[in-house]
Design a binder for these strands. Structure first.
Length: 309
RNA sequence: GCCCAGAUAGCUCAGUAGGUAGAGCAGGGGACUGAAAAUCCCCGUGUCCUUGGUUCAAUUCCGAGUCUGGGCA
C-alpha cells in the first residue's frame, strides 16, 4: 500500500490552505487539519478556517471536531490524525496534513509516545495554587528534587512547563526530550514548509487581520460569548479571540484590539518559523512576490514525485 | 511677531552634578513530549537637532539658528 503523506506547513497567513487545496486536486488528495484552533467548532473567522465552499472541493478532515471548551491535547490530536491518515490511505487517496501547529506535526512525524496515563486537572490546579503561593523558584526546586534531569532542561521561570513536568513525573515517566524521537517510519513523508520575506509576511498578516474583522470577527466572538463560553475557555485564548474579548469587556478600544491581534499574530509567526527550523528533513519553499498558489502547488507536486518512476 | 517647553535607539521617553548613554514597546534570535495560536529565555552604537563659545574634555553649561508642541497677541 502506498504510504505517502504530505505535510504542508509554514507560518500563519503564508497561504498554506490555498496551496494545499490546489495540491490536493492534483494528487487526488484529502486535507487533514493540523492547526490547534481550527479543530474547534464555531471558531471559523478568527482561525481563518477554509470556507465551506473550499471544503467541498476536496474532502477536509479534522476541522470542527470539538466544542470550544474541550481540553484538546497533542495526544488526542495524534490519535485522531493517525486514524484519519490510515483511513485515507486505505481508500487509496493521498493524505495532506496542513497546518502550523508544530508540536502536532511533530506528533505525526516522529514517534512520540503518549501511552502514560494523562494527569488529572485536579492535580494541575493544586500545583498551580502551589506555584502562586510559593513562587516559581520553589516549583523549580521541587522538580529538581524529584526529577533533576528534567528540571535541568526547563528554565526556572517557566512555571507552566515545570507544573507539567511534575504531573508527568507523578503519572509515571516524566517528560522526555523531544530530540530523542525517531522518525515515524509507518509513512513516507513529503514535508514542505512555505515561507516568504519577513516584511511581506508581516504585511500579509496585518492585511488578513483587517479582512477577518471585516468578515465579522467581532460578531463571531459575541456569539461565542452568548453561547456561554468565556475568556477562560481554552479555544478563546487563541489569537484574535482573546483580544476581541478584551475589547468587548471594555478593557481596550477596538482599534487597539485589532493592533494587538496583528502584533500577536506576528509574534506567533516568528515562533512558528523558529520551531520549523529544527527539522533537517524539511523542504523550504521561499515564495516569490507574485507567485500564485497554483505555481507553488505545481512545484511541490513536481518536486515530490521526481526520483520516483 | 513674542513667551514657554521640547529635540537622545524604528516609536514613546529616561539620563549624564561635564568624562560619548538606557528602559518600555517595536524588531531580531532561541528553547520546547499531554494547554503549543500556549509557556519561557537571550539580544540595545545611536550624527544624544545644527552651529559657535567656555573647558583638558560638551549630548550635558552658555549664545545663536532650525524644527515641533503649548500659550499670548
Amino acid at each position: 500500500m502506498n504510504k505517502t503523506v504530505y505535510i504542508i506547513t509554514g507560518p500563519t497567513a503564508v497561504g498554506k490552505s490555498e496551496v494545499a487545496l490546489k495540491l490536493a486536486s492534483k494528487l487526488d488528495g484529502e486535507i487533514i487539519n493540523c492547526d490547534s484552533i481550527q479543530l474547534y467548532k464555531y471558531l471559523d473567522i478568527g482561525s481563518a478556517k477554509p470556507s465551506e465552499e473550499e471544503m467541498k472541493i476536496v474532502p477536509h478532515h479534522l476541522f470542527d471536531m470539538v466544542d470550544p471548551d474541550f481540553n484538546m491535547t497533542v495526544a488526542t490530536y495524534q490519535k485522531l490524525a493517525f486514524a484519519c491518515i490510515n483511513n485515507i490511505l486505505e481508500r487509496g487517496k493521498t493524505p495532506i496534513l496542513v497546518g502550523g501547529t508544530g508540536l502536532y506535526i511533530n506528533s505525526v512525524l516522529y514517534n512520540m509516545d503518549f501511552a502514560a496515563k494523562p494527569d488529572t486537572y485536579e492535580r494541575r490546579e493544586e500545583l498551580e495554587k502551589m506555584a502562586e503561593e510559593r513562587g516559581a523558584e520553589y516549583m523549580h526546586a521541587y522538580l529538581t528534587a524529584i526529577d533533576e534531569d528534567c528540571a535541568s532542561r526547563i528554565h526556572p521561570n517557566n512555571t507552566r512547563k515545570i507544573i507539567r513536568a511534575i504531573e508527568a513525573f507523578e503519572a509515571g515517566e516524566g517528560i522526555k526530550p523531544l530530540d530523542n524521537c525517531e522518525l515515524n517510519e509507518n509513512y513516507d513523508f513529503k514535508f514542505y514548509a512555505l515561507t516568504m520575506d519577513r516584511e511581506w509576511l508581516y504585511a500579509k498578516i496585518n492585511n488578513r487581520v483587517l479582512k477577518l474583522v471585516k468578515a465579522g470577527l467581532v460578531d463571531e466572538v459575541k456569539s461565542l460569548l452568548d453561547m456561554g463560553y468565556t475568556s477562560d475557555t481554552q479555544a478563546l485564548k487563541g489569537i484574535g479571540y482573546k483580544e476581541i474579548i478584551e475589547y468587548l469587556e471594555g478593557k481596550t478600544d477596538q482599534k487597539t484590539a485589532v493592533l494587538n491581534i496583528m502584533k500577536n499574530t506576528r509574534h506567533f509567526a516568528k515562533r512558528q518559523l523558529t520551531w520549523l527550523r529544527r527539522y533537517d528533513n524539511l523542504n523550504w519553499i521561499e515564495i516569490q512576490n507574485g507567485q500564485t498558489s497554483d505555481e507553488i502547488a505545481e512545484y511541490i507536486y513536481e518536486d515530490s514525485i521526481k526520483g520516483e518512476n
